[in-house]
């Protein structure tokens, strides 16, 4: 018996992007900071476009440590949640259309978060990527790195532990 033909590439892409967008834009604080996610396959890059309200020291000027940690924590939570969802969507356990129509999955809860400020954040766009070092049924450990102009020169990094949402059924 012939395998079912996969959906056309643009249909799959559109569905995945719409699911990610629904997940991200469902959180008011993420919208307040103006964070967007750029997706290449299952890899996400968080983008924090520069805004005057992100400044912590107007004299330098430099980004606020709190804006940076907020950005890193958002990157970690969305990165972790997306990595779990990605597998579920791929295996047909979760329907991307469900997410798009507003049935958002519960997000992981932060247990602790440790931020390392390596250099001051310049008044320009910032980028970050999360690496899920362990993702268990209940707990997860995630590392995040953020950079600005130069990928090799991170300006902040963080490690956080998260409590995974209960998956009933």
């Amino acid at each position: 018996m012939a395998r079912k033909r996969p959906d056309p590439v643009q249909v799959i892409k559109q569905r995945r992007d719409a699911a990610l967008s629904a997940l991200v834009h469902g959180v008011p604080y993420i919208n307040f900071l103006g964070i967007e996610f750029d997706r290449r396959g299952d890899e996400l890059t968080a983008v924090l476009p520069y805004d005057d309200k992100l400044i912590g020291n107007p004299l330098l000027p430099a980004l606020h440590g709190g804006a940076i940690s907020g950005f890193l924590e958002v990157t970690a939570v969305i990165g972790l949640s997306w990595s779990v969802l990605w597998d579920e969507i791929e295996h047909g356990q979760t329907d991307a259309e469900e997410i798009v129509s507003g049935h958002l999955p519960r997000l992981p809860k932060t247990i602790d978060f440790t931020i390392d400020y390596l250099r001051s954040g310049l008044p320009r766009d910032a980028y970050a990527r999360a690496k899920v070092n362990r993702s268990g049924r209940r707990y997860a450990s995630v590392h995040v790195e953020a950079w600005q102009d130069n990928r090799a020169r991170a300006f902040a990094q963080a490690t956080g532990h998260f409590l995974m949402p209960r998956r009933d059924g």
Partner: peptide
């Protein structure tokens, strides 16, 4: 959001 709490703490 935890990020807002950490901005406050910072």
């Amino acid at each position: 959001h935890g990020g807002a709490v950490s901005a406050l703490m910072d």
